[in-house]
Deep mutational scan, measured.
Amino acid sequence: TGYYDVLGVKPDASDNELKKAYRKMALKFHPDKNPDGAEQFKQISQAYEVLSDEKKRQIYDQ
């Protein structure tokens, strides 16, 4: 599964769309709200870390 799929956004998503999707998913799977969501929360955080950084995103998109 790709990072875009993890966040539920298209590859041409804007920074604002990425942030909005990340916040929505992070709230849904945060371990405090969803004890079984810890692994998914890590994936969401990693996806956002890469896609929100312009240089990392360019490398990922290659």
Rank of each mutant, 00 (worst) to 15 (best):
A47L: 01
P35L: 05
D61H: 05
D61Y: 05
F29N: 04
E39W: 09
V50T: 11
E49R: 12
I44K: 01
L7R: 00
Y3N: 05
T1W: 15
D61S: 03
K24S: 09
L18V: 14
R23D: 15
V9F: 01
L51A: 00
L51M: 02
L27Y: 09
G37P: 01
I59Q: 13
L51C: 03
A13P: 00
A21N: 01
G37M: 10
D12P: 02
N16A: 15
K24N: 13
M25A: 10
A21H: 03
D5Y: 08
K42L: 14
I44L: 07
I44Q: 00
D53C: 09
G2P: 10
D12L: 04
N34M: 07
L7V: 02
Q46E: 14
A13L: 05
K42T: 07
T1H: 13
S45L: 15
A13D: 03
Q62L: 12
I59L: 12
F41M: 08
R23A: 15
P31T: 09
P35K: 08
T1P: 14
S52K: 07
A26H: 14
N34K: 05
P31S: 06
Q58V: 09
K56T: 09
D32A: 11
D32L: 12
K42D: 07
K55P: 03
D61G: 07
P35S: 06
Y4F: 07
P11Q: 08
P11W: 11
Q62H: 09
G37C: 13
K33T: 13
Q58T: 09
K20P: 00
E54M: 13
D32Y: 08
K56M: 07
M25I: 06
M25W: 08
F41G: 00
E54F: 13
L7K: 02
D5M: 09
A47V: 11
K33P: 01
G8D: 05
D61C: 03
S14I: 02
P35R: 06
R57T: 04
L7Y: 00
L7S: 01
P31V: 05
S45T: 15
T1D: 10
A21R: 00
V6A: 06
I59K: 08
P31R: 07
L7N: 01
V6L: 14
L7E: 04
F41W: 15
T1I: 13
S52V: 09
Y3S: 01
Q40K: 14
K20A: 15
Q46M: 13
D36L: 10
S52Q: 06
S45F: 11
Y4E: 02
I59P: 04
G37L: 11
E17Q: 08
A26C: 15
K33N: 13
F29P: 00
K28P: 01
P31C: 11
S14L: 05
A26M: 13
P31Q: 08
N34V: 06
H30I: 02
K42S: 09
Q40D: 05
E54I: 14
D53W: 04
Y48T: 02
R23E: 15
L18D: 01
R23G: 12
K56V: 03
M25K: 09
P31E: 01
P11S: 09
V50K: 05
E17Y: 03
Y22F: 14
K20C: 13
E49D: 09
R57C: 04
K19E: 14
Y3P: 02
H30Y: 02
P11N: 05
G8M: 04
E54Q: 12
D12G: 12
T1K: 13
A13K: 00
K33C: 15
Q46C: 12
K56R: 12
R57W: 02
K28H: 09
S45N: 12
G37N: 11
P11E: 05
L18N: 01
A47K: 02
S52D: 00
E54D: 11
S14R: 05
E49L: 10
V9E: 02
Q46F: 11
L18P: 00
P31D: 05
F41R: 03
N34D: 10
E39K: 09
Y3M: 03
G2T: 15
F29H: 05
K19Y: 14
D5G: 09
A26F: 15
G2N: 15
A26N: 06
R23F: 14
A13Q: 01
Q62K: 13
I59N: 09
K10C: 15
K56Y: 06
D36H: 10
A26K: 09
D36G: 11
Q43I: 15
D5F: 09
D15T: 14
F41H: 05
S52F: 05
H30P: 02
